[in-house]
């Protein structure tokens, strides 16, 4: 069902429409939060907070842009807040994951490699890559979500792709 129709139904007090909208976007927002926070429970909590924020501030939400973009913009801000609140883990406590341990690289390790490569990127570049390649946003939309200019978004994407290509080509598993 189209978002505009759902929003109109929600505005008229239809609670079922609200449930449909949440079900429609829950997985996407959760995936985005997970890739940014790297923790399932944190991602689920932030996803919940995104939808609660949407409901509490429904009046301030105007049907100017797409509902999906609005939810991602909220998720972007809440992820930043969550990352700031997160207690930093001392480096010595982190078990360094190495993709070179085993010659026969299984799916899990491959995913781990990509994750490591993404984590090597600066935060902004990582986010542009996530929104562009995992969530299929246009550059203009990414700029709106991240509240930044179009040219800087283009620059971040090209830099991100370059760095990521280098990092991934270093790995033998590709």
């Amino acid at each position: 069902m189209y978002d505009e129709k759902l929003i109109r139904r929600i505005k008229s007090g239809d609670m079922e429409a609200l449930g449909v909208l949440i079900q429609k976007y829950y997985n996407d927002i959760y995936a985005y939060c997970y890739r940014r926070l790297d923790n399932k429970h944190d991602a689920q909590d932030v996803t919940q907070e995104v939808f609660l924020h949407f409901c509490r501030n429904f009046d301030s939400y105007t049907q100017r842009g797409k509902c999906r973009n609005y939810l991602y913009a909220v998720a972007h801000n809440l992820c930043i807040n969550a990352m700031q609140k997160k207690t930093p883990i001392p480096l010595e406590d982190v078990e360094r994951k190495s993709p070179y341990d085993d010659v026969a690289v299984d799916r899990f390790e491959a995913a781990d490699c990509v994750e490591s490569a993404l984590n090597e990127l600066p935060k902004e570049q990582k986010e542009v890559i996530l929104l562009r390649f995992y969530h299929d946003f246009k550059l203009k939309e990414i700029a709106q979500i991240m509240d930044s200019g179009l040219s800087i978004t283009k620059y971040r994407l090209s830099q991100g792709i370059k760095t990521l290509s280098k990092l991934l080509s270093k790995e033998d598993w590709i």
Binding site: I10, M15, L18, G19, I22, Q23, Y26, N27, Y30, A31, Y34, R35, K40, A43, Q44, T47, Q48, F51, L52, F54, C55, R56, F58, R107, A110, A111, C113, V114, E115, L118, I129, F133, Y134
Partner: peptide, 25 residues
Amino acid sequence: LKRFSVPAYEPDKMKETIFLAKKAY
């Protein structure tokens, strides 16, 4: 990048989100 998959969310958590969102609304 497709190799970096995301673990499935807990369905109960989504139900809880829907319930809380309706309450907040």
